[in-house]
Write a protein that binds this DNA or RNA. Structure first.
Length: 586
RNA sequence: GGGGACGUGGCGUAGCUGGUUUAACGCGUCAGACUGUCGAUCUGAAGAUCGCGGGUUCGAAUCCCGUCGUCCCCGCCA
């Protein structure tokens, strides 16, 4: 070992003893005579003293030391003089009088300082990620992430789960997200795909009788990036045999509340609140509601069923709906801010946005003349509007009205700091529709994925036309308005799986070509099974309170999916392409 | 595929309704001073063709067009 102690462990008990430390030069404070050097390693910071009276040659050598030099120092631990104790450091009561110094490696001046208080551009941080990761917050994040992973592994181990590694080179499944493709040298013209999830393999493992599988696994999707979306991301993926929804919920709740307790000491009461998809949409306008604040949607269709206001009237006649939210304290919103809200509503797909200001005890706006006093009173009551509030109203097709107001609700809450960042809000969202209509392609798509079972009582609907009413046996875990996990009871019989493929437009031949191996497996005694996958990057971000998942990923990519450090993706040699049977396109 | 914001010494920013700017400030860097600092302090210095290309103008960091890059959002993400 190049050290006898770490930079975080020396204290009063070590006074008088000799110690050897190794680490980075964190800070130097040169007083001409006395020189103080803070040496830092993964465990902490220790102050070194170079005193010319004690050791002149060491003092000379200390002048060579600069930021981030890697050094090894041998010296005697001594008590700091009275009044010079640093209470901020665990090692603040002692210092090491340097007796021998080795520069293990000099360093260029770092491109930015290792100070959390400094904001550094993402570009610079990612290019010099090795420096960025030395910063205290990033160290904390990466270690916290390990703690989350580690807790999950041991929790699942205790619950009889087996971790199995599934292939990274696998078969392309073009439905769903875009695949990352890998050309096959040995099979000219053919491609592997990087998995979007280990879905099919984990189901096969259930057929294999593993009973309980899990994996902390990388998944790949070639889609546009966001602050919460990276092209490669990590899931805690699990699957269980002979279980129902309640078993998955119970296990997940133990897992999630366990992590909260272990990582941040927060008690999360179980069971988590369960919310049906339809109710989530009605109340929050989204299937991933943030319940840390109110401002829920209200339905004004009943109150306005005889409205004289033509736009609203026509909407109702066409089977649409009138929904509203109460923007607390927003009546004083400027004209331009209001216009911005209206513009935003249109971006979200609404035809327009009506509003009613609650001032001097009554509702008023540019359209109030279209309403009768009774209607206004009822609206005010239903929306629970108080002095200074602003009621925002969307009349449209139900999906649009709910979606627009759901988005506005979130935006207004963020803007007016309505969200208590210390709160943790969890929902199970259940009873999703199994299919969603794809008007462009004129067919039904899976809402979740095509391996999801439907409610038994809705199975008969599969043969009908009204497929939008079929409810899935799927569930999402939503934390603070973010989709953190998603799963379902799976189909485990060939006939049903074939039927689903047919509905989503995969003919028998195509379905067999792509998923025949899974359906074949179902024919050899596939047990009923179910599972769930947690997005570990997003989940960890809840604890670090980072803005982006990039801050909990050691080596993330930029929004253009580039790694500024390695330069990936890069050009390759013509020779490589030739071997892979790929012609260079100009 | 679309919309928006940004790009100024190593880092973070100011300047940007064109002309008192020789492009300013903080941090860092370098040199000197200093025996108890810990965000050390004090003095001084170096360091920027203002992302790149073109245009408008007597004059461009500043206005316009294009382009590249970063970030945010919509679409997309079974």
């Amino acid at each position: 070992m190049l050290r006898t102690h770490t930079c975080g462990e020396l204290n009063k008990k070590n006074i008088g003893k000799e110690a050897t430390l190794a680490g980075w030069v964190h800070k130097r404070r040169d007083h001409g005579e006395l020189i103080f050097i803070d040496v830092r390693d993964a465990y902490g910071i220790t102050q070194l003293v170079f005193d010319p009276k004690e050791n002149r040659s060491m003092h000379e050598k200390a002048h060579e030391l600069k930021s981030e030099y890697v050094i090894q120092v041998k010296g005697v631990v001594r008590e700091r003089p009275a009044g010079t104790v640093n209470k901020k450091l665990p090692t603040g009561e002692i210092e090491v009088l340097a007796g021998a110094l080795d520069i293990l490696n000099p360093s260029l001046t770092p491109p930015f300082e290792l100070d959390d208080a400094l904001t550094v551009s993402d570009e610079a941080r990612l290019k010099y990620r090795y420096i960025d990761l030395r910063r205290p917050n990033m160290q904390k994040n990466i270690r916290l992430r390990h703690k989350v992973n580690s807790f999950m592994r041991s929790f699942l181990e205790k619950n009889n789960f087996v971790e199995v590694e599934t292939p990274i080179l696998t078969r392309s499944t073009p439905e769903g997200a875009r695949d990352y493709l890998v050309p096959s040298r040995l099979n000219p013209g053919k491609f592997y795909a990087l998995p979007q999830s280990p879905q099919l393999f984990k189901q096969i493992l259930m057929v294999s009788g593993l009973d309980r599988y899990f994996q902390i696994v990388r998944c790949f999707r070639d889609e546009d990036l966001r602050k919460d979306r990276q092209p490669e991301f990590t899931q805690l993926d699990l699957e269980m045999s002979f279980v129902t929804e309640d078993d998955i919920f119970e296990l997940s709740e133990g897992l999630i509340s366990g992590v909260f307790k272990a990582v941040s000491g927060i008690d999360i009461p179980t069971p988590f609140t369960r919310l049906k998809y339809a109710e989530a949409m009605e109340r929050f306008g989204t299937d991933k509601p943030d319940g840390r604040f109110g401002m829920e949607l209200t339905d004004l269709s009943g109150i306005l069923k005889n409205t004289k206001f033509n736009i609203f009237k026509k909407t109702l006649e066409k089977g649409g709906t009138i929904r509203a939210i109460n923007a607390k304290g927003y009546s004083k919103l400027s004209r331009s801010a209001l216009d911005a809200l209206i513009a935003k509503s249109k971006d979200y797909g609404a035809g327009g946005l009506a509003y009613l200001k609650c001032e001097k005890g009554k509702l008023s706006s540019n359209i109030d003349k279209f309403f009768e006093a009774g209607e206004l009173d009822s609206i005010k009551e239903k929306a629970k509007a108080e002095e200074g509030d602003l009621i925002l109203i969307v009349a449209d097709k139900k999906a649009i009205a709910l979606g627009v107001l759901g988005s506005l609700r979130l935006e207004i809450a963020k803007e007016s700091n309505l969200i208590d960042e210390n709160k943790v809000n969890l929902f199970w969202i259940t009873d999703f529709p199994l299919f969603k209509r794809n008007d462009e392609e004129n067919r039904w798509d899976s809402e979740h994925h095509p391996f999801t079972a439907c409610k038994e009582e809705d199975a008969k609907l599969l043969d009908g036309k009204d497929l939008g009413r079929v409810r899935a046996r799927s569930y999402d875990l939503v934390i603070n308005g973010q989709e953190i996990a998603s799963g379902s009871i799976r189909i485990h019989r060939r006939d049903l799986q074939e039927k689903i493929f047919k509905i989503i437009g995969l003919d028998k031949e195509e379905a067999n070509r792509r998923f025949g191996f899974l359906m074949d497996a179902f024919q050899y005694g596939a047990p009923p099974h179910a599972g769930i996958a947690f997005g570990l990057d997003r989940f960890t971000t809840i604890f670090t309170k980072s803005v982006s998942i990039r801050d909990v990923i050691a080596f993330p990519k930029t929004q253009k999916a580039v790694c500024p450090m390695t330069g990936a993706p890069s050009d390759v040699d013509d020779k490589q392409l030739k071997e892979l049977h790929i012609k260079k396109s100009k």
